[in-house]
Every structure is written in C-alpha cells, then in structure tokens.
Simulated assay, not measured.
Amino acid sequence: MKPDFKNKCPDFEISYSKKKYIPELITKIEEIKSNKKSVYFNFIISIGLSFIILFISYYLLKVTLEYKSLFSATMSLLSSVIGTTILSIAYGKLVTYKKRLNKIEKEKKKLDEILRNYQLNSETIVKTI
C-alpha cells in the first residue's frame, strides 16, 4: 500500500539553506524591479536616438539620389547601420530585463505554491530567520 500525502508530506520542514534563500530571492526581485524605470528610460531614449539617426540616414539618401554623391551614400549607409544597431541594443536590453524578471518571479511562484500547501508564506519564513 502506498502512502497518501495528498501533495503534502506530514514531516515537512524547510531547511536552513532554503530559509536563507527566500530573503535572497525577494531581494533579487526587488533589485530587478528597482531597475525598471532606468531600463525603460534608456529604451525610450535609445529608440528616439536611433529614429533620429535613421531619419538623418533617409535625408542623406535623398541627397545621394539628388546629387549622386559617394560621400552622402557612404554616410547614409553608415548612419543606417548605427541607427539600427542602437535600436537592436535597446531592444536586447529590454528583453534581457524582462527575461530575468520573469525567471526569478517564476522561481518565487513555485516556492510560494509549495509553501501554500503547508499554510506558510515567504514573509513569515523571512521573519523567523
């Protein structure tokens, strides 16, 4: 006959290392969330800057077509590359921020689900340390 725990273990006890890990996890989440404003601010500034550079590139392309200037063509291509690079870097930083936040929040959610089975929550465990 198999024991029936109903998703619970009667002798459940949180290890000391897990008790120490919970406040660290909460601190990591708070640190990542505290960077939210700066990440979004940098994203908006970078997008604005890249669109300005891309607009300049478009203007230089018009000059190139009008005057058939090799210098304007080169500058147009260079500014297009710079604008696109800035845009992709800004997007990459935003995606990295969101991935880090989602990963650590999933980890906390899993931990909270386990603790909820035993009528515990992470805040009470932090207080008992």
Rank of each mutant, 00 (worst) to 15 (best):
T96C: 05
V81A: 04
L70Q: 09
K62M: 14
E107A: 04
S57R: 05
F43S: 05
K127Q: 13
K68D: 06
F41G: 00
A90Q: 02
M75F: 15
K36N: 12
D4G: 09
D112I: 04
T124D: 15
L120N: 08
I129H: 04
I82C: 00
V81Y: 01
K68C: 02
V95R: 10
N121P: 11
L61M: 13
P3H: 13
F41D: 12
K62E: 11
T64P: 02
L120V: 06
K98H: 06
N7T: 09
E123N: 10
K127Y: 13
N7A: 10
N121M: 09
N102P: 05
Q119A: 07
L78W: 06
I129T: 05
F43P: 00
K62Q: 10
I29F: 04
L111R: 00
K18N: 11
E31Q: 14
T64M: 09
K19A: 05
A90I: 00
L120Y: 09
Y118R: 07
K19P: 00
M75G: 02
I47G: 03
F43C: 02
D4T: 11
M1Y: 08
I125V: 09
K6Q: 15
K37T: 08
N7G: 12
I114E: 10
S72Q: 03
T74M: 14
Y118T: 05
N35D: 13
L101S: 01
K33E: 15
S38Y: 07
S72K: 04
S69M: 05
T84R: 03
L70I: 06
S46F: 07
S69H: 07
K8R: 15
N117W: 12
I22K: 04
L87I: 08
F43K: 02
M1E: 06
V39G: 01
K28Y: 11
I125P: 02
K2W: 06
T74N: 13
I129V: 10
I29W: 06
N117R: 15
I22P: 04
E24N: 07
D4R: 12
E123L: 13
F41H: 08
D11E: 14
T124M: 15
E13T: 11
A90K: 03
K109R: 09
K6E: 14
I104Q: 04
S80K: 05
L60Y: 07
K6S: 14
T64K: 10
L70G: 04
F5I: 07
S57W: 09
Y118Q: 05
S50N: 10
L111Y: 03
Y97P: 02
M1S: 11
S80N: 11
L25N: 03
K68F: 12
Y91S: 06
I129N: 12
N42Q: 03
E24L: 12
T124H: 14
I26N: 04
A73L: 14
K93L: 13
K99E: 10
P10R: 11
S50R: 06
T64G: 01
F51Y: 15
T27L: 05
G92A: 12
G92K: 10
K33W: 08
K33F: 09
K28C: 08
L61R: 08
E105M: 13
L49A: 15
V63C: 04
I47L: 09
K68E: 13
R100T: 05
F41N: 03
S57F: 10
K62W: 12
N102G: 08
N102E: 14
K20E: 03
K18I: 09
Q119L: 08
E30I: 07
I29N: 02
G83D: 00
P3L: 09
Y40P: 01
S122F: 11
